[in-house]
């Protein structure tokens, strides 16, 4: 276990640095080929040249290497890494610290993604197990059909449609009924309510987790069916164990190993999806911040926040890998 952990940590550092550099280099290339983001900020009415120069200097965009197409600008990368290490992620175009902006918003996004992860894991695994145990029966066909359909819905399409159907149509009806408590009504609103920091995130959370729910259900199903055919499950039956134990102990644990790995990768999907969900439901989270900054062409914020989210994603993957080793001794003793 110790050696596995050490090796995994050792792999983690170059991947983090590599991904950071990739993000940096792509940004540099975009600026070198796409043009100056400061000028783009003002569109057709540019302010005097001195103002633009001053802003360039302020955001570190006055570096000569930005003029040379293809130059990786290692100097800028180095400076930026040093700043990140001191938790200095820069300022937005209005002069506010980006760490402050994120600090205000991350609890909302954390709640949103937590709701999504809990929902998709529990419901996805249950659906997958039901389908896998009754292969080719009604439940299985139903789960296969509905998950295929769900996967075909891009998150934003699903989100806007759920917003119209559930939060508006159904929500209006619910609000008109006196016997529903206020907190229940708060759940069915098309927007975020700061008085109900968890409940008003339930529907956005379900939307965010819907795609991965379908993926988890299918993964669980396939992996369960494969394991049910395996020799060690036959051994468990030959040992005279009850069916419940054969499935619950000998099959399920093995079948959930790929699901755990998937959830690690899924953190990335969810953080991207939060952009979409927070935009649709007007949620003041980190994704909403990215979207807002995109609209305002504030690329410093976009890059800094995406950098933070990428770090969160990589760390989540590291944690999942450790968990994976706990579940599967073959990895642990490799």
């Amino acid at each position: 276990m110790g050696r596995y952990l050490a090796r995994r940590l050792l792999q983690f550092i170059p991947v983090v640095v590599g991904t950071m550099f990739l993000l940096h280099y792509m940004t540099m290339l975009s600026i070198q080929f796409g043009g100056d983001p400061i000028r783009a900020l003002f569109g057709d009415n540019p302010p005097p040249a001195q103002v633009i120069e001053a802003m360039r200097a302020r955001f570190g965009l006055d570096n000569g290497c930005l003029e040379q197409k293809g130059n990786p600008c290692v100097g800028i990368f180095w400076d930026r890494m040093l700043q990140y290490l001191q938790f200095d992620f820069g300022i937005n175009f209005r002069g506010r610290e980006i760490t402050d902006l994120v600090g205000e918003r991350w609890p909302v996004t954390l709640r949103l993604t937590l709701i999504a992860i809990i929902f998709e894991t529990i419901v996805g695994v249950i659906l997958g197990v039901m389908a896998g145990l009754r292969k080719d029966k009604f439940v299985d066909n139903f789960v296969r059909f509905s998950t295929t359909l769900l996967i075909a819905f891009p998150t934003f399409v699903f989100g806007v449609i759920i917003q119209v159907l559930v939060a508006l149509a159904l929500g209006d009806w619910i609000k008109a009924q006196d016997y529903f408590p206020t907190w229940f009504k708060a759940m069915f609103t098309p927007v975020f309510l700061s008085d109900y920091p968890w409940l008003s995130l339930v529907i956005p959370g379900l939307v965010l987790g819907a795609f991965s729910l379908a993926a988890i259900a299918r993964l669980t199903r396939t992996s369960l069916i494969e394991n049910l055919r395996s020799d060690y499950v036959r051994t468990a039956r030959a040992k005279g164990l009850a069916q419940r134990r054969v499935i619950g102990v000998h099959t399920l644990r093995n079948s959930l190993i790929p699901v755990v790995t998937y959830i690690g990768i899924d953190v990335g999907t969810l953080l991207g999806g939060a952009l979409v969900t927070e935009r649709i439901f007007n949620i003041p989270g980190v994704g909403g911040l990215v979207f807002q900054s995109v609209t305002q062409k504030d690329s410093t914020v976009v890059i800094a926040v995406v950098t933070m989210l990428t770090l969160v994603f990589l760390t989540a993957n590291l944690i999942v890998d450790v968990f994976y080793a706990v579940l599967d001794p073959r990895i642990r003793y490799e």
Partner: peptide
């Protein structure tokens, strides 16, 4: 029938690597 298994009749499979559960000691 389940009680008969292992108590009265037991079986040894061909490939022990796949017949033993990899995640338990």
């Amino acid at each position: 029938r389940r009680h008969v298994r292992a108590n009265k009749i037991a079986i040894i499979f061909q490939d022990a690597l796949s017949a033993l559960n990899p995640v338990f000691t």
